[in-house]
Write a protein that binds this DNA or RNA. Structure first.
Length: 260
DNA sequence: AACATTGCCAACCGCTGTAGT
DNA sequence: TACTACAGCGGTTGGCAATGT
């Protein structure tokens, strides 16, 4: 079976997404849906492969993405589900609304995996603390996330602009845009109806410029400085303090011990 | 202060499953 | 049935910030 390369090496951008790219992608998907991930970047004016666009949308820009610290309940649920399902991250993600499979996977490899290993290894010894233990929430955020307000989803951003549901061409996008894709949560499955999707021929016409200019001009709230103002004072303030991480570790280990 | 190490997370890569022709 | 194109999944990696020496 011959497979076409997922990424065209020539001229295909890779690496961290810029705010401008996020804007383009979010605006396009919000308005037209993802009728074809491969073709989407072309019509969205992005020099990215469709795969990359999909990943960015699913893991970062999609509405209702929950970011920040994992609650104790979430950790326990992940541990439980992982015990039942193994590394079926997408399946696990369906049980944690707002969490993406990628995020859960990362969280597992960075935190929970160690806890389980410690649990197994330290059954007769005190729980070993990680070298770095944030005292008050996960204080570290990548520079990228400081530049790009991850705590504000595209949904929130677009809602605050003329891209809000009231002006959307999609009648079903009352609280979230109607995106023709499936998500790990199984939410949001309908394909955009044909009349909601401009055909590539239309988009490819000379009127493209107005199309591309329009949403981004409209989307003032998404633009640089104003955009950043939507960030909460602390990206994680809404999730509260990461208090008593030691207790959390102990409880998780205890639960693991219960399973054994 | 400078350098080394560690941890986190976004993104990439390669594979599989599935629908369409 | 065979082939193709695409979406989706899971493993892995690279870059950056925090922390340690």
């Amino acid at each position: 079976m011959v497979r076409t390369p997922c990424c065209d090496v020539s001229g295909m951008k890779k690496g961290t997404w810029t705010v401008e790219e996020d804007k383009k992608l979010a605006a396009y998907i919000t308005k037209y849906g993802c009728w074809n991930w491969r073709q989407l970047p072309k019509y969205a004016g992005l020099s990215r492969c469709g795969k990359s666009c999909r990943l960015r949308w699913m893991n970062y820009l999609r509405p209702n993405i929950k970011r920040g610290n994992y609650s104790q309940e979430e950790d326990q649920l992940i541990l439980k589900l992982h015990r039942q399902l193994g590394n079926k991250w997408s399946a696990i993600a369906t049980h944690l609304p707002g969490r993406t499979d990628n995020e859960i996977k990362n969280h597992w490899h960075t935190s929970l995996k160690k806890l389980t290993e410690q649990g197994y290894a330290s059954s007769s010894s005190p729980t070993q603390q990680p070298r770095k233990k944030p005292s008050a929430g996960r204080t570290k955020r990548s520079r990228k996330q400081q530049e790009i307000p991850s705590s504000v989803s595209a949904h929130e951003i677009l809602e605050s602009s003329q891209w809000s549901s009231s002006s959307s061409s999609s009648p079903s996008s009352s609280s979230s845009p109607s995106i023709g894709t499936s998500s790990p949560n199984g939410e949001n499955t309908p394909e955009p109806s044909p009349d909601q999707i401009q055909t590539p021929q239309i988009l490819g016409s000379s009127e493209d410029e107005s199309f591309w200019n329009e949403p981004f001009l409209l989307d003032n709230a998404f633009a640089s400085d104003d955009f950043l103002d939507y960030r909460p004072a602390s990206p994680f303030s809404q999730y509260g303090e990461f208090s008593s991480s030691c207790n959390l570790v102990d409880e998780l280990v205890n639960e693991l011990m219960d399973y054994l």
